[in-house]
Design a protein around this nucleic acid. Structure first.
Lengths: 143, 143
DNA sequence: TTTCTTTTCTGGAATAATTCTAAACTATTG
DNA sequence: CAATAGTTTAGAATTATTCCAGAAAAGAAA
């Protein structure tokens, strides 16, 4: 008989995801991936995620948070959105979309790509390739 | 006769500009404004401008560079463009336009507003007002 | 398993960009 | 000119992030 409390393989999805991204499914990467990818899309800062992990009882250093966020980003599991000098969000939504940035609260909100239209983009100069087009709509003012 | 070398009132334009922005035309603000606003539009970082000022023989502290750039920005003489975490440009072009960001070199290049089209912008939520729409086209790759 | 190899994690130091601070200085007003 | 209100400054402080070298853990081999 099992001496462990029974549970329904709670890590499988996340482990598979890490593996197919070429990342070893370590304890801390699994924990972070669970926080990030199970549930709704999210916008987090490194510090946010650090606090959240510790609150959830997961012991992870801040350096590892940064490492993981960058690795996830390089692997295409997330993307980085820079809104202000010294404030960088990591977004679990990697699909085609843009953002509202609430200047008052500092919050980021998705704009689905079908609710905005960017067209007539000029050619990238010098034969370079367009990596990405970021549209940030900065909003503020009366509630 | 004038004991000074003759010159064609080189500060008038800049002084007027500062005054109408509600900023005292101090020695350092005048010098920085001359570097920034006389000639072509420019994209500078605080550090860039600091080096440039010192090279031009103007003694200005870095704190004053930051103060001035922010004051100029608040006064609507410049605008700030954040491209990467920890890399913020100040742009003397306050007109309606967007940017290419060269990921390889870190350089910023203007995209005139008539060469790009952003439409069907959604309403700002909660009755907030749109302050600005920034489009950054990130480019990289083979020359 | 046990061992070996390689990758990852960690705390703390290091760096970089920016802001703060309190004293010294300067432009404007009277 | 003197008063005062705004500005500048050097350096300390802060914040975000990266670097580092040793400890720990994962995967492969035996």
């Amino acid at each position: 008989m099992d001496t462990q409390a029974p549970h329904i393989r709670p890590y499988t999805g996340v482990i598979a995801r890490l593996k197919s991204a070429g990342l070893r499914p370590t304890r801390q990467r699994i924990a972070l991936a669970k926080l990030l990818f199970e549930g709704e899309n999210r916008h987090v800062t490194a510090e946010d995620l650090h606090v959240e992990a510790r609150t959830a009882g997961v012991s992870v250093s801040l350096a590892t948070i940064y490492n993981s966020l960058h690795q996830f980003t390089e692997a295409g599991l997330m993307r980085e959105v820079v809104v202000e000098a010294g404030r960088s969000y990591f977004d679990t939504n990697t699909g085609d979309h843009h953002h509202f940035f609430h200047e008052d609260s500092g919050a980021l909100e998705d704009i689905p790509s079908d609710r905005i239209n960017v067209s007539e983009l000029p050619e990238a100069p010098d034969g370079k390739k367009v990596q990405r087009v970021d549209v940030i709509v900065r909003i503020a003012g009366a509630e």
